[in-house]
Amino acid sequence: MEVDKGKGEAEETRKVAEADRDTVTLKSSDGKLFEVSKEAAARLSTVLAGMIAGGSIDDNGTDLKQIGSEALENVVDYCNKHANSIPSAALISSSISFNTAPFKEPEEWERKFVDRLSHDALFDLVEAANFLGMERLLDVTCHKISEMMKGKSPDQIREVFNIKNDYTKEELEEIRQELAWAFYDD
């Protein structure tokens, strides 16, 4: 669904965009162009909504220097898929207070969307979602990463996320004693 255009095609895109401004062209840090529906971009990303409203969208491709092409491809893919899916009732209700769930559960297609990503792509996507102010995508990606931690031992978490153990043996022993309750099953 995502459009990854070469230079010649970019020319064409501009003409189309000029004639029919339903889409926004985004440019990744490595210069690749992607096209996304204006409506979806404005609805899903507060940053892009601000840019569209403020008229700072460049028809030749709005520069997003912080985002690599792979992550931007996923962002655009997500926007397109989101536009095609019917939001459930849970998504329509808006504000989050402390007596509703702090986070909304990802939908089935969103789960599948993040499940197919590699670690590298997933972390890049979290950063991109954060940069673009895409609350929903941030929810989905953070949820996925937290799933990767649940029920795992500290060693397993270190392995999955490649985190260095910077504790000394004594420190670790002390902490394990303090948090002993976390290592037993109820």
């Binding site: 649940k150 795992k152 500290p154 260095k164 902490i175 309750w181 290592f183």
Partner: peptide, 12 residues
């Protein structure tokens, strides 16, 4: 809470 506590054990 156990998951959070285990995360605390991962690194300082």
């Amino acid at each position: 809470g156990k998951d959070l506590a285990r995360v605390e054990c991962v690194s300082a």
